[in-house]
Design a protein around this nucleic acid. Structure first.
Lengths: 255, 255
DNA sequence: CGTGGAATTGACTAAGGTCAAAGTTAGTGG
DNA sequence: CCACTAACTTTGACCTTAGTCAATTCCACG
């Protein structure tokens, strides 16, 4: 529950023209200069949050909306007695805080895994974005629909896949998403900040059982659990075990 | 897998002015005549689908988008070997087929529980809606964000709640949603077309265990399983068992 | 070294799944 | 009105998966 901190900063906000998401090649760039100009005008600053800090607290509201520029984190919900369910991971290009913007308040929390850089917008101006640049509004809907599709798959996983299938799916999923935005260097997932407890809370399994399930996958030689994270040795096999097709690889928009 | 059928019809499409969703009092009506006019222009017809028919098949695409006018159904995904996970229920005011409109194809199927009447739009004109009437576009995003929030809660449920809590949540959820749109007459859920198999596939439990769990809830006198569905005897207690706050009761938009 | 947060493991328990059989109910056709 | 089905619901017996508890081991770090 460490509050988000804005580091002392020798850091300066990145102008949208130079937004790393544009040049990464993983996203569909703005359609035209007008869109770029509009987003520039919409952007109000940046948030630099440290690993382990909490970006949003469940049940609160926030006047801000963010697009993740770099780093990653996760969204989760908890039951009164502390049981926690991780809902999804947020990675570069993801929109954070849309729910809080549209509904009264956020029904989930968001926590950073690594240091994160986020592009900050004011939610009060969201409607303006829709009016002045409808195609950006359309893109936001697109992003929301994509998040929903991912949740569908998670729900299928937690509801119907066995522990091994589910774990295989989760690792494949994280690997695929991270790779799609170039989150980690190299080919293997540098899952570093993620503990087995995180995986367990995502999978809906206990910590102990998660550990034993990971071992099974290691014995099958499809992953290797390392000092600094998991190495995915055989993504195809992993998808195969999970019965998962992987992510569609289309360029996606961001705002 | 019965294909959707369009009954012979003594039925005529309802003009938007007389849309029952407007007069039901459960939704926020159009802001002004312009919106109404635009939606009218956007509407391309109606689909009357019979109970048990499949509206969308997993993995296919469709040129149409729908708003549910009456009746209800459910969205689901399946694994290769047939294991099925029901993701959510669609009820009046819900948008169906947005994913297929934005992504290449629908990753889930939709099946009717009761006869349904749906308002039909063409997905090729969706962008036009955003451009010509941004606030309707905004509403669609709102609806998508709401769906996502519901999925978050389901995921928490399936991942972390016990069988009894989960079942209590599900029944409370269906009751609350149905009530919020006046789906059933009277106070108790006329869950008629829904079998325990449906509940099981939603809960991520086996049929047998679902049955035993329902019995526990009956023994607690919070529900009663009847010929024609479940009667929710004590919604507060149900929410309490589930540790669920219920749905926010704000008027919601529809398109 | 000493500490604290992960990761591991083994032993035991419990929640939930599988199987099989029987009871209900609504619908069909005679 | 009555047998006959088919689809659901219920139950009991037994099995498997996953959870709980309690140590232990590993490391990174001060």
């Amino acid at each position: 529950m460490t509050p988000p901190t804005t580091p002392p900063s020798n850091t300066r906000a990145i102008p949208c023209e130079k937004c790393p998401l544009r040049s990464s090649g993983h996203f569909r760039d703005f359609e035209n200069d007008e869109e770029l100009a509009f987003v520039s005008h919409f952007k109000r600053g940046e948030l630099l949050a440290e690993a382990r800090s909490t970006l949003f607290v469940e049940g609160t509201n926030s006047p801000h909306l963010y697009t993740v520029i770099s780093g990653w984190g996760f969204r989760y919900k908890t039951l009164q007695d502390g049981r926690r369910q991780i809902l999804n991971y947020v990675m570069p290009g993801d929109f954070v805080g849309l729910q809080a913007s549209l509904m009264r308040e956020m029904q989930h929390a968001v926590e950073c895994l690594s240091d994160m850089r986020l592009c900050l917008f004011e939610r009060s101006r969201l409607m303006e974005l829709y009016s002045r640049n409808p195609s950006l509004g359309f893109d936001i809907t697109w992003i929301a629909a994509r998040d929903e599709r991912i949740l569908d798959e998670h729900l299928l996983s937690v509801g119907r896949r066995t522990a091994v299938e589910r774990t295989a799916y989760l690792l494949a999923y994280i690997q695929a998403r991270a790779k799609a935005v170039g989150l980690f260097e190299g080919d293997d997932v540098d899952i570093t900040p993620l503990t087995q407890q995180h995986l367990a809370d995502t999978l809906g399994l206990s910590l102990v059982h998660t550990n034993k399930t990971l071992r099974k996958l290691q014995d099958l030689k499809v992953i290797a659990w390392r000092e600094a994270g998991v190495r995915v040795l055989d993504i195809d096999r992993l998808c195969d075990i999970a019965g998962w097709q992987g992510l569609p690889d289309e360029k996606r928009p961001f705002v």
